[in-house]
């Protein structure tokens, strides 16, 4: 069975390490904040200028001056700091953020990512995504394995305008976990009940499969 959004988020959270500074993109990556293990402490960076993002506020604590990068009302966690946008991107571009998790339309086997534009259809902008993929130490993409027409989003080469080149280290989809290295997707885990054959059939880019691919553990 393919994973639900929540299960993908749970698997993403397994990548979090104690003491890490992490930037989570909008959507599934943000959900992963719900599943941080109890025995670790991480700091979430929100690129509008907040390090130490807390939960959404209660009605009483809603403050128009306190938002996250998705423009949602938010709170500051204990130990948080707030700063300007240049400082925020100095952290990101200077390689100080340990992990970035973001969504994508496509990723290719060289680790290039397309996530911000569909020519003729969608003109919204890249926000901070290009800075994040150019700057973070470790970059994980979460997305559904195929689009709604069943086309693979893991390609030999991206077809949409790129967000960054050769920068993605890992992909977590609803079917599997891949490491991206040496010009190929290396299958490291599969979702419970999902066969290697199914993953192979739904992956358009070069795929490397070892003899024994474990199922994800939750």
């Amino acid at each position: 069975m393919s994973l639900s959004r929540e299960q993908i988020a749970m698997r993403v959270a397994q990548e979090f390490c104690d003491g890490h500074y992490i930037n989570l993109g909008i959507g599934i990556p943000t959900l992963a904040a719900n599943y941080v293990a109890d025995d670790i402490e991480v700091m979430l960076q929100s690129e509008n200028g907040l390090l130490g993002m807390g939960p959404y506020p209660t009605e009483e604590r809603v403050d128009a001056d306190m938002i996250n990068a998705g423009k949602e009302t938010v709170t500051a966690a204990t130990g948080a700091s707030i700063f300007n946008s240049a400082e925020s991107f100095a952290m990101i571009r200077g390689g100080h953020v340990d992990l970035t998790v973001l969504g994508a339309f496509e990723v290719d086997s060289n680790g290039s990512i397309a996530s911000w534009m569909i020519p003729g259809k969608l003109i919204k902008g890249m926000g901070g995504a290009m800075d994040l993929v150019a700057g973070a130490q470790n970059i994980i993409v979460t997305m559904t394995h195929a689009d709604k027409h069943g086309n693979s989003k893991l390609l030999e080469q991206c077809t949409l305008p790129l967000t960054g080149v050769n920068c993605i280290n890992k992909i977590i989809t609803d079917l599997a976990v891949f490491e991206v290295k040496e010009g190929a997707f290396h299958l490291v885990e599969r979702a419970p009940g999902v066969s290697v054959a199914e993953i192979q059939s739904k992956t358009a880019g070069k795929l490397v499969v070892s003899n024994d691919v474990p199922e994800m553990m939750f």
Partner: peptide
Amino acid sequence: EKRIERKILSSDNSNQ
């Protein structure tokens, strides 16, 4: 006015 673009409350979503 300080208009809020997306008011999300802790009760709306289980974020953390």
